[in-house]
Amino acid sequence: MAFNILLVDDSVTVRSVISKALHLAGVDINLLYQAANGLEALEILEAEWIDIVLCDISMPVMDGETLVRKMGENGMINSIPVVIVSSAGSEPRIQRLRDMGVRDYIQKPFTPERIREVVDSVMGVTKHA
């Protein structure tokens, strides 16, 4: 099954690196959307079908924590799984985000294999020998 994936990060470098990592890892992608902050992400989430969100924490305009909270308040998008991709992943913050419904956390720098592992796990993709 091919996924519609939304990347949310204010750094165009990170969005490019995650995009390449997803392709290198062989993640089955239908459409790849990009947003530079939480507000842009909300607009895309409310307009498009998104299967999974990969999101940074620290961003201008609207940060990742606020995005996750606003998604949780919106019944149309509150079931879309969110994975945090960040370097500011202290244990208290990760726990706070998990309590808000975030499904997993990827620490930067990451490998394509780690991205694949998390996407497969969150989306329930089973491995075939």
Binding site: D10, S58, P60, S87, A88, S90, P92, R93
Partner: peptide, 10 residues
């Protein structure tokens, strides 16, 4: 420590 709570600026 990993237990430190912090936020990063731009």
């Amino acid at each position: 420590g990993k237990g430190a709570d912090f936020g990063l600026g731009s």
